[in-house]
Amino acid sequence: MSKIVFINIPAYGHINPTLGLVDELVKNNEQVIYFSTDEFRESIEAAGGTFKSLGDKFKLPSMKKDGEEAFIMVNLILDSLEYLVDKILYELKDITIDAVVYCSMFLVGKIIATIHNVPQISSFAIFASKDQLIEKNHIIIDYNDLRIKEIILKHSKISNSIKNKYNITIPSFIDMLFNKGDINIAYTSKYMIDDIENYDSSFKFIGPPIYNRKEHIEFPLYKLYNQFVIYISLGTVYNNINFDIYNNFFEAFKDVDAVVVLAAYHIDLSDFKIPDNFIVRDYVPQTDILKYTDVAITHCGMNSASELIYNKIPFVSIPFGADQLYIANRIEQLGGTIYLNKNKVTPKILRGAVEEVLNNPSYLRNLKKIKYSFDNAGGYKKGSYEIINLIKNSKKVI
């Protein structure tokens, strides 16, 4: 039995893809120790992992403005880095570990693996490359920007401290969100990557993060029985950037003969008049709802887009940030969705796009092609095999 440590950013889009890996590794009699925040304790333990708390030093806020996510993420990582490294090392001081699985954006995981001199497995919950993210999000690195200057000073200070304490050189502030491992788990298929030639053999494309998360979330599923169901979700991080979009949803579908399920995570909609045919919840059992969904509107985060494709549900994409823009663009290239600009959405445009993906059979036909590539990618069994095989081979070398 190997002891495998998971260290992850406390966000649903990063935690959820790894739960199937945890489950599969535990089924193979491996022990998983998982570091995250208390919000994710239940789902981690339900998957079979031993939960360890990161405390509240690293808390990812909801984004409220375009272009701020990169600054927020880099500052969060730098501000918490030494604290988290010290905390995790203390928690592991009496434990011999065999590998570390870490979120590719979470530098602390790579540092812990390096200090322990064990195999490194990077979890690419965001699979767009650095250049693609910069291009799609229109990020400009302006070294005259005061925010950049502050980050450079902070990075230099933290870098020197980590170097002196652990003799480890941390990447530049631009590269610290892209930490490769000995192997890199990507939760998609090669078919979904438009520049596959830029990915070396260390990348293991295992298909979408489809896993029964054993969540216990109260929701009136009976209201969806024998109904036409529209499901709308903008995720949990960028869903507060364009607040007016929620009124567009209400206006577009208030008179439609359908039940509209709207997931509005930590969004205060008390000032809106919510139509009677809407069911609005802070968080919903997405896997269960998709069993009844006829069409969807999504931010096109990797988890949601993959689940919609897997369930062969036509959808309209309204990406907001990070790799959502890349994913939406790629699926549109493959003929599987309509990509709408979040700043130009109107009720009329929304209705028209939903009707088009529903009534034009080419969208569903192309989604089925993507699903076929998912079905043949290997899934969590392949991911588990790659991790276990890496650990075995590293021990042979020793």
Results as ranks from 00 to 15, higher is better:
Ile141Phe: 14
Tyr310Leu: 00
Ile398Phe: 06
Ile206Pro: 07
Phe58Trp: 04
His299Val: 03
Lys157Arg: 15
Lys382Glu: 15
Gly383Pro: 10
Ile4Phe: 06
Leu76Lys: 12
Lys136Gly: 00
Pro275Val: 06
Glu218Phe: 04
Lys190Leu: 03
Pro347Val: 01
Asn248Phe: 04
Met73Leu: 13
Ile388Gly: 04
Leu221Val: 09
Ile139Thr: 06
Leu21His: 01
Val295Glu: 07
Asn343His: 15
Asn29Ser: 14
Ser189Lys: 13
Asn311Phe: 09
Thr37Asn: 09
Val354Met: 05
Gly109His: 11
Asp98Gly: 06
Lys342His: 12
Gln227Phe: 03
Ile388Met: 11
Ile174Pro: 00
Ile151Arg: 04
Ala305Pro: 00
Gln31Gly: 00
Asn8Pro: 01
Ile148Trp: 10
Asn360Thr: 15
Ile331Asn: 02
Val284Phe: 06
Ile140Gly: 05
Gln132Phe: 01
Pro17Met: 13
Leu25Ala: 00
Val259Asp: 01
Asn389Gln: 12
Lys223Pro: 00
Glu69Leu: 11
Ile183Cys: 07
Val85Tyr: 10
Ala353His: 12
Ile115Lys: 13
Val357Met: 03
Val284Tyr: 09
Leu269Asp: 07
Lys344Cys: 00
Phe127Arg: 02
Pro209Cys: 12
Asp23Ser: 14
Tyr326Met: 06
Ser306Cys: 13
Leu60Ala: 12
Ile313Cys: 00
Leu76Ser: 14
Asn184Trp: 13
Lys165Ile: 06
Met1Leu: 11
Lys382Ser: 10
Leu153Asp: 13
Ile267Phe: 02
Pro208Gln: 10
Val229Asp: 00
Leu81Ser: 10
Phe278Asp: 05
Ile217Gln: 01
Val101Tyr: 01
Lys395His: 13
Tyr380Asp: 02
Ser362Leu: 10
Gly49Lys: 02
Asn329Trp: 05
Asn366Cys: 07
Glu218Ala: 08
Gln333Trp: 07
Gly383Thr: 07
Ile140Lys: 15
Lys110His: 14
Asp182Glu: 14
Thr18Lys: 07
Pro347Trp: 06
Asp268Ser: 11
Val256Ala: 08
Ile391Pro: 06
Lys180Ala: 15
